[in-house]
Design a protein around this nucleic acid. Structure first.
Lengths: 122, 122
DNA sequence: TGGATATTTGCAGAACCATGGAAACATGAA
DNA sequence: TTCATGTTTCCATGGTTCTGCAAATATCCA
């Protein structure tokens, strides 16, 4: 993650509708949510939603996958982790007085085995 | 942290100069840095820097304190932590398959070493 | 094929944001 | 008080973003 990427990602999240969308997708988990369902949940017109989903996708925060007639959007957890790591990097010059977590981005999204996934979509 | 606050904070960070300033202050730690020094480090004209510092302060990400003729700016680590917690909240409906850290904002009363703040003055 | 559903693109106006020079303001020293 | 230094406010300019209608595109089913 470099500063320009971080600015893009932060800019993508710095808008009410997009933040709502992203949090909804974070909640939804890896399975994601179809665009129409998102618009329905948040009561956002399709065109407006599409604009925002594009912004989020360009910023690397969400991914789209086509499934039949639906397009499922899901949060890109790994990219988000990288952003969080970037923001807390070098806190207090690495000294012990640090008030932010020395947050490490995992190299891959960590999935735990034996989970009780409830994210399966309609 | 509520969505509107988060949008403000993210918007404040979603700009190159401001992100640079904030990260510089995160690096600098609780002691912070005088405005002039920040401008010097980042080569930003005083008027421009002042504008951005105001934005960051209004978003609750930095705090200012006057010290003689200098104004020291420092990152508000607690507010930043709240933002990070907000962004990772309710990940995957709280299920075990979560790919984001279940990040907890430290409570106001349990400050880590180095931060001896006791409230925000705006 | 035609029709229904799902989503994106084009567009234009309004609103908002970034920049930096000049001037004003605040603080401390002499 | 006067001066020097540090910081902010004012302001004009140019740029970017948000919104949602209408139209276009994509996919599936009969």
């Amino acid at each position: 993650m470099n500063p320009a990427e971080a600015v893009n990602a932060l800019g993508a999240l710095a808008q009410g509708t997009r933040l709502d969308v992203f949090r909804l997708l974070v909640k939804a988990g890896p399975g994601g949510m179809a665009a129409g369902k998102i618009g329905e949940s948040l009561e956002v017109p399709a065109a407006t939603l599409s604009f925002h989903l594009k912004e989020l996708a360009q910023a690397g925060l969400v991914e789209a996958r086509q499934e039949n007639r639906f397009i499922y959007y899901s949060a890109d957890f790994e990219h988000m982790n990288q952003l969080l790591a970037f923001l807390t990097q070098n806190c207090c010059e690495g000294g012990g007085s640090c008030a932010l977590p020395q947050f490490q981005a995992p190299s891959r999204t960590r999935q735990r085995a034996g989970t009780k996934r409830r994210g399966r979509q309609t």
